[in-house]
């Protein structure tokens, strides 16, 4: 067994301790996390794929399921946690480079984007 492969080991190298226990996110509010629009798309980064298996459960699960991009809302459903918790987890992972987030717009979509959407729906 490789030393450090288990995130809970107290003697693990610091670089492996890149996540905090899930329990800490319960009820935690974070500036940043609440800014993450609900439709924000989350995709596992190369780094997330690499270290994913060593991560603690919730992060590992997110790294696995976001190989195919999923919204924060979907992450919340598939992980079985409230939206706010999903936001915090995704924000943490994003800060650590484990996932890339593609945010929804906070302003009104512009004309070019609306036209893409219109064509996309017409082609359905």
């Amino acid at each position: 067994m490789t030393a450090g492969a288990t995130p809970d080991r107290p003697d693990e190298p610091p670089q492996m301790r890149i996540v905090r226990p899930y329990a800490l996110t319960g009820g935690r509010t974070r500036s940043g996390a609440s800014d993450l629009p609900i439709e924000t798309l989350v995709r596992t980064s190369a780094r997330g794929r690499e270290v994913g298996p060593k991560l603690q459960l919730e992060y590992r699960t997110i790294a696995e399921m976001c190989e195919e991009p999923l919204s924060v809302a979907e992450v919340s459903v598939h992980l079985g946690v409230p939206l706010g918790v999903a936001r915090v987890l995704v924000t943490d992972m994003s800060e650590q480079g484990l996932v890339d987030v593609h945010k929804g717009r906070t302003d009104r979509p512009n004309q070019a984007l609306l036209e893409r959407v219109l064509h996309g729906i017409r082609d359905l």
Binding site: E74, V117, G120
Partner: peptide, 15 residues
């Protein structure tokens, strides 16, 4: 909510 992939990385969510 539901999801509709519109191609080219564009994903529409209905909430």
């Amino acid at each position: 909510f539901g999801r509709i992939s519109l191609g080219g990385g564009l994903v529409l969510y209905l909430f």
